[in-house]
Amino acid sequence: MKKIRHTAQKNPDARTAWGFLAPALVLLGLFVLWPTLRALFWSFTDADLLRPQQAQPQGTANYSDLLNDPRFRQAFFNTALFALMVVPVQTVFAFFLALWVNRPEAYWRWLRTVFFVPVVVSLPVLAILWTLLYQPVRGEEMGLINALITGIGLPGQRWLRDPNLALPALAFMSVWQGAGFQMLIFLAGLQNLNSETLEAARIDGAGSWQRLRFVILPAMKNSIIFVVTATLILSFRLFAQPYLMTGGGPDGRTRSLIQFIYETTFQDRNLGLASAGVILFLFIVAFLTLLQRLAGKEEKS
């Protein structure tokens, strides 16, 4: 038996492999890699969005401009801080959510749908809803969150208008909005666990912590690595929430990297600088992903 496995894996039918890979590679090359290379090229030029054909090479000027731009540095810092808040909280939250609703009865299937709904609703509309939730106290009026907080005797906050709270407020909203997505991936991972193990490990009494730690976590390791990677990448893509809810303020404390790149591309029309931003963005995220993969070495089945 062992020998067959060995042969099956080590017997390289390279032509079949390339045949399997070709369609995906062609499409990825055409629609992902090629545009990226174009951006890489522009990043060393003074390309103007309205006339990229006339771009003139100018060495690494865009990169040094970016690194010396306080707005870019602030955008990087904001995005990193956002990821630092969202990744652990959302992963843990989604993990327990998945464990909790992973039961066969129809009721729990409905509940899964419930937790998934926010993922589906369009972000511009969620931006309205959460602006309403975060409404500061003014006279008798306040948003639901301030109503809850003042209800238990704490002072109301200005949330999106407070330089220190705006980014955490966006992070909190993002956890609420996106957790269903991560829950979905965890649920897919849980399907590979045998149901008795799960039943035994359901968090509903003494000893469940042990079972979680020694039974479920090791079995879910791949899923967890995957979710952390995905959440990290997605949180670095932060864009719509600050763009729609805070405009990057107050004090520029919520401007995200993508927002910076977007503004540089479409408002300043500085395609060269924006492309340099894209390339730096890719390096940063690739570096973080690599770091995180090294930290939690993937287990091969």
Partner: peptide, 9 residues
């Protein structure tokens, strides 16, 4: 390639 968001490209 996962990390490439369409917003920037």
């Amino acid at each position: 390639l996962i990390i490439l968001p369409v917003e920037v490209l």
